[in-house]
Amino acid sequence: MKSNDWAIEVIGLKKSYKNVEVLRGVNFTVQKGSTFALLGSNGAGKTTMIKILATLLQPDSGSAKINGDDVTKQPEHIRKEISLTGQSVTADYILTGRENLRMMAKLRHLPDPDKQAEELLRRFDLLDAADRRISTYSGGMCRRLDLAMSLLGNPSVIFLDEPTTGLDPQARIAMWDMIKDLARSGVTVFLTTQYLEEADHLADQIAILHEGHIVATGSPAELKNRLPRGHIELRFDNESTLNQARELFKEFNATADSNNLTLSVITDGSTRQMLRLLTKAAEADIEIAEFAQKLPTLEDVFLAIVTSKKEGSK
C-alpha cells in the first residue's frame, strides 16, 4: 500500500516526560475510513499518543503522519483535517448546547453557524436540550455534544480519547451507535479505550499499547485467534463440590467463583483434553451441574499477552 493511503502512519515514535518513558518506539498504521482502537490500561500512554497525533505534543523521536502530513512539520495543515474529543468533556458548561456548537462553527470559520448547529443537534438527539446550559446535561448528553462539536467542519480523521469512560451502560451503547454511524459516513475514527468490549464492538483494527510498545495488533477476530485455547466454565450445585473440583483441576489453572458456584478452567480447546477433564470429574464422583465452552474474549487475549510479556522479561 502506498504511504498516502494511510490516514495515520506512526513509525518508531518515542516520548518521555522528565523521567518516565511513556512511548518507547510505537509503530502502527490506520487505513483511511477505518475505525482503529488503541487499547491500554490506565497510564499506558493513550492520551499521550492522541496528543501527539493531534499536534498538541511534540514527539522526542520517530514520525507520525496524518494523511501523509508530518505532525511536526505541517501541524497547521493537519488541524484542518482532524478533530479531537478529549478524555474530559470540554464543552462549555455555562453555554447552552446550541451556543457551544455555534461557537465551534464560528471558530472553524464555517458559513451559517446556526444551521450547522441545528443539524448536529438533531443528529445527536439533543434538540430538546438545545437551549439549556450544559451544566444541566447528563454525562451521556455532554459526551454526545462534545462529539457533535468535533464534527463541525467535516474533519476526515476523528480522535476520541476514551469516549465512553464514566458513562452508564445505556449511555455507552448510545455513544457506540453514534460512533458506528460516524464510521459508516467514511471518516477515519481513532479511539482509545480501556474496555476490550468496546474495542471489539467498534474497531476494525485494534492495537494494544503496553509499557510503551504495541504488543499486539489485528482485527478483533485475529486477536482472538491468537489464543487457540478457550476456557470452559463448570457450574456446581454447592460450594463443597466446587471446592473439590478446584482441587482436582489445579493443573488446568482453575479459578473458582464461589458466588456463582462456577469454576473456570483453561484448556487448549481440544476434545481430547475436554474428555480427560470430564473423565477425571466422573472418576472423582463430582457432579457437574452445567458445562459450557467459552470462546476466548479480548480480555483473555489482553491478559495472556500482558502476562507472557511479564514472564518473558523476568
Binding site: T55, S83, S88, R108
Partner: peptide, 13 residues
C-alpha cells in the same frame, strides 16, 4: 486544567 485550551489548539484557529 479541563483541556479546553488543548481542544482549541487542535483546531485551525
Amino acid at each position: 486544567t479541563k483541556g479546553v485550551f488543548e481542544r482549541f489548539h487542535s483546531m485551525p484557529i
